[in-house]
Design a binder for these strands. Sequence first.
DNA 1: TCTGGGGTCCTAGGACCC
DNA 2: TCTGGGGTCCTAGGACCC
Length: 432
Amino acid sequence: MPTFGLVDCNNFYASCERVFNPRLEGRPVVILSNNDGCIIARSNEAKQLGIPMGAPYYRWRKLCEENGVHVFSSNYELYGDMSQRIMQILAEMCPDIEIYSIDEAFLRVESFNQQDIIKYAKHIRETIKRCTGIPVSIGIAPSKTLSKVANHIAKKQRRNGVFDLRNTKMQEAVLSQFAVDNIWGIGRRLSEQLNTMNIYTAKELRDSDPKAMRRRFSVVMEKTIQELGGISCLSLESIKARKQIISSRSFGRWVTALEEIEEALSCYTNTACQKLREQGSVAGGVSVFLHTNLFSEKGIRYHNNASCLFENPTGDTRHIISAAKKCLRSIYKFGLQYKKTGIVLLDLSPKQYQQQDFFSAQVAEENDLLMQTVDSINRKLGKNTVFYCAEGTTRPWQMRSDLRTPRYTTRWGELLEVKIAGDVKPFSTSSC
DNA sequence: TCTGGGGTCCTAGGACCC
DNA sequence: TCTGGGGTCCTAGGACCC
């Protein structure tokens, strides 16, 4: 029988901040989204204050100030690097691994015997904590969906961060207390519909008729029901190349001038193209979108997009920037106050199967070399060491990120400084 | 009056995830 | 005043084919 372990970092972004600022331990911490717009991560103490996930920060600012909540802008460079370190440790300790998100990974662990699994899970947990400072929880169960449930329990009930849900009696007990909207794959809409069918708990969903539910909902629902019953339908997935790459940001302020939007779009295009080449793909086309503030009741609400396909798939930033600008000009309307633009790279395919243009093969090769050189300079010397004029230099539209901590682990200039008062004695760091 | 059957491909929109 | 960003999968419906 398959056995899955789900390793999930506890309040990951908040924990990353705490690693470099231990004074935050035991205190409420929240992390804001890009542009300091929404609250996207909370420490347990912040959750206890009733601060919800995804809420606009301006509505909670007062409560945060009154309760001494420590508020930070997102520091994705730091979180991404911490994530890589954790995933590397996991991959070394367990060969069958699927990195599911920045802070989660599924493991296949059935080759260990009954007791060993729990012991090993605790060992994994301690190793990650010791080497990175990040606390994790591990749920163990016969399907991925149940391992998600188990992880939930591991977090809530302080069972040394590990919870075993392989026993069917335990499954009965846990699922009958587990709200249906907490199940992986059941969101707000589906749980509303399930409630109208008198299904409120995971056990009630598990005991429904999978075929009938498939007809009413979809195959995804059928699989969820099977998985809750301990029948594994979802296997570990290997890392696949992305099928599309999006890069977009809201502006830090209103933008009306086409030139400024073009700069921002060029900048996002550059980011997207770097990701494209990193995964060894070329794009067959682009789609560009542009919109005003869609939340606002006042003013004109405008949302539009345009796309174009390339004659030959390409990974050349210059070519893609110029195509993106053409799309943008076709949807830009003078006089509106814009809030956001973005680019989607479409129709991605592996570069090695790229159809060569017979008449310009050599030019393509030279362009490749140029892109490789730009990428390697930016990798070595830091992002944006070399950039495109089209991206502009003053960038007044750039997003707000006023409360970001230093990128301690990826920038030499931002290393953690330790100030020791009084008598200074040399000390050694830990074994990691 | 009455208008087949079976298939593919594409896209938009919905729902979900972190 | 102030509301993130980046993904995936599924389905329905339209267009088109023979």
